[in-house]
């Protein structure tokens, strides 16, 4: 039991801070290389409005399933400044197919490249898909891991909530 003590204390410490509702977690201003070669930072992407970050790979089944909905939301709420940034984690093994996959689907959302999970590790997006919804002020509003069919409704609700198109009270009715 003594061996576990440092770990338990560490988890408790982190959990205590994690439940500190008054403290806003601000997303770090990480550099992202986009698929078209452009380099941009996360805070630059937040200039116009909120941002939804999703970590994905071409071999990840649930990632591909949720993509069509995320592209739909990216287009539907773009007039409110909302953007979706899909951060790809394909290794060089399948990196050659990322562009053809995206272009064949004609997706409009932004594609970031993170082949050795530098960004994913900094944002703890190691499970795919991991969604991170960031408000325009940079504060992380919501995190979500995995995707099951039907969860797209909750994702859209959270986006609408952050855009002020829905209120918290309507959450139960919506879901």
């Amino acid at each position: 039991m003594k061996k576990y003590l440092p770990l338990i204390l560490l988890i408790l410490t982190v959990s205590l801070f994690a439940t500190d509702v008054d403290k806003k977690q601000i997303i770090p201003d990480l550099k992202v290389k986009l698929m078209d070669g452009q380099k941009i930072t996360i805070h630059e992407l937040l200039k116009d409005g909120p941002l939804l970050i999703d970590f994905w790979a071409t071999w990840c089944k649930p990632c591909k399933k949720v993509m069509k909905y995320l592209d739909q939301y990216h287009n539907e709420y773009s007039d409110k400044g909302f953007k979706v940034l899909m951060i790809n984690q394909d290794s060089p093994r399948s990196m050659g197919k990322v562009k053809t996959f995206i272009r064949s689907k004609k997706f409009d959302f932004l594609i970031g490249l993170d082949p050795n999970q530098k960004i994913a590790k900094k944002l703890n997006g190691l499970i795919m898909p991991t969604l991170i919804l960031v408000a325009q002020d940079g504060s992380i509003q919501w995190r979500h891991q995995g995707y099951m069919p039907g969860e797209e409704k909750e994702i859209e609700h959270k986006i609408r909530l952050i855009l002020g198109l829905e209120s918290e009270s309507s959450e139960n009715d919506k879901l």
Binding site: L9, L10, T13, F17, Q25, N124, I140
Partner: peptide, 17 residues
């Protein structure tokens, strides 16, 4: 390490875990 982590949090660092 635990002490360090606690100090860092109190110094108003941003973090995720």
């Amino acid at each position: 390490s635990l002490l360090l982590v606690s100090i860092l949090f109190s110094a108003d660092f941003d973090y995720n875990a």
